[in-house]
């Protein structure tokens, strides 16, 4: 599954999930809730870019 990076530098890695927002390990970026935001800076999903 792909990693996605926020402009602030935070990287969403499905293998880690996002415990702070109750996101289970193994959740693909595309399956994150629409209201999920970057846990570091609060940016919305639309600002993230997929890492090659």
């Amino acid at each position: 599954m792909d990693k996605w990076e926020c402009p602030c530098g935070y990287i969403y890695d499905p293998e880690e999930g996002d415990a702070e927002s109750n996101i289970q390990i193994g959740t693909a970026f595309e399956d994150l809730p629409d209201d999920w935001v970057c846990p570091k800076c609060g940016a919305e999903k639309e600002y993230f870019e997929k890492l090659d």
Binding site: C6, P7, C8, C41, G42, A43
Partner: peptide, 11 residues
């Protein structure tokens, strides 16, 4: 803190 880059702190 990176919170200052986005709305988390800037709001």
């Amino acid at each position: 803190d990176p919170c200052w880059i986005g709305p988390k702190c800037l709001k």
